[in-house]
């Protein structure tokens, strides 16, 4: 199990940031991703593996309006 934006999410072997975004259908272009507080650069979404128990944040930057 991992946390995505503070909510439980099923973890699986080989889960990359990109796979997670696809699964969650997070298609909005202005997002940033952190794993355990560390920023993951966009170019690395495909190759960055998420480990079981990680705390992932996918922050969508369209706020206030």
């Amino acid at each position: 199990m991992i946390k995505v934006n503070s909510k439980d999410f099923e973890w699986e072997e080989g889960l990359t940031v990109q796979k997670l975004l696809d699964k969650k259908k997070y298609t909005f272009p202005k997002i940033y991703v952190t794993i355990n507080g560390e920023i993951v650069e966009k170019e690395e979404y495909d190759i960055t593996l998420i480990k079981d128990g990680d705390d992932v944040k996918v922050i969508h930057l369209l706020a206030g309006g």
Partner: peptide, 16 residues
Amino acid sequence: QHDEAWLIFMDMVNNQ
């Protein structure tokens, strides 16, 4: 009208 506040992503998606 949504011109005072649009908080859906902050609230529902980001859980901030």
